[in-house]
Amino acid sequence: MKKLPVSCPSCASALQVSSLSCTSCDTVIQGSYSLPMLLQLPQEEQDFILEFVLSGGSLKAMAKKLDRSYPTVRNLLDDIIENLKQLRNE
């Protein structure tokens, strides 16, 4: 699966969506759209959030699924929360 780039490989600034296209009728929309906050997170953090939601928001279930201890998983979530807070303040 191709990874969605979220930061500029040249200057590391956040990237924006400038073009969207319909795969059915080839309509192309040009503009300048910000990426949703969750998509601005690194891929592994997005994967974690997806798994966390699918686990019913249970850290214990996540710990079992990832074969890691509860504090390890809780720290991953805390780091993601910190990243989201930073993105919201930018």
Binding site: P42, E44, E45, D47, F48, E51, A63, L66, D67, R68, S69, Y70, P71, T72, L76
Partner: peptide
């Protein structure tokens, strides 16, 4: 989940094993 490092069982078993 690349962020989870391969656990160091000798010096940090708390990262891997349940309480």
């Amino acid at each position: 989940m690349n962020k989870i490092k391969k656990s160091n069982l000798l010096f940090n078993p708390f990262e891997r094993f349940r309480e």
